[in-house]
Design a protein around this nucleic acid. Sequence first.
DNA 1: GTTGGTGCAAATAGTTTGCACAGTT
DNA 2: AACTGTGCAAACTATTTGCACCAAC
Lengths: 146, 146
Amino acid sequence: MRDISQIITKFREAGLKVTPQRMSICHLLEDDHSHPSAEEIYRKALTIHPSISFTTVYKTLQTLRDLGEIQELNIDPERAHYDPDIRDHAHFFCKTCRSIIDLETDGFRRDSLARSFHDAEDLEIHHVQIHMVGLCEKCRDGDTAS
Amino acid sequence: MRDISQIITKFREAGLKVTPQRMSICHLLEDDHSHPSAEEIYRKALTIHPSISFTTVYKTLQTLRDLGEIQELNIDPERAHYDPDIRDHAHFFCKTCRSIIDLETDGFRRDSLARSFHDAEDLEIHHVQIHMVGLCEKCRDGDTAS
DNA sequence: GTTGGTGCAAATAGTTTGCACAGTT
DNA sequence: AACTGTGCAAACTATTTGCACCAAC
């Protein structure tokens, strides 16, 4: 996700209005590397903008996703999570506490991975998600659920 | 997914009963490389076993997943898909027609990928999913939806 | 003033569960 | 006979939509 000022420009160029609700959500996401769900973003937004609705949060997240400013993660089968970091990186999902941890993908280039498959299969690949699923350090010790 | 005979043994060893419904679902999955959803498996099962319920299909899929005989794919945000092929391979998901295509991961070893992250982060990784999302050949030509 | 956004409430859809009866062992 | 599985119906949860009013442009 880029600077708020750049996002404002992009909104205006796309004929979208710059509203206080949208700006609040952008500010929240800018500082949040916890991969929150829509519900979590909504709860945080309420503290800034007490009358904001879940619908507005939901639609704003869709808008930001469609503009390519955030990525929607489908790593948790129960709900979508959102990541303002659109750079190449993999994610780890803990089955127990449902937390998501960033993993740097130094070892290989995700783009070239996508390109090689693209060449072979004649597919138009828009994005790649690499997901590791298991137990985080805390949950591994305290919980044996698989 | 292994031979039905091996799965029967595994069921009995786990104290699970071998029922006609479960066997029908195993036979359906054995030959199905289309990555069906629970609903699709249910509809196919109905043609073999007209009184089977969605609940039974759903619970059997969970059982097979928990036994490690199939993998549950969370590549489609709208529903889970199931894959009887538990070998290392990536998947492509078409946003338009919702089809899933297998991609062989010759270029790198998924296990070593997981292991390198594991060593670095102290996580217990149970499985890895590599997802490419975009448009398949057919939908790319006929549809410009992103 | 025009156009798109917000917020409410309701609808949708996939998933999951409680329970009584049936089938496997 | 004991115990798990099946099937029905209902509950649950995340997501999505219709619409009237409001705000940005």
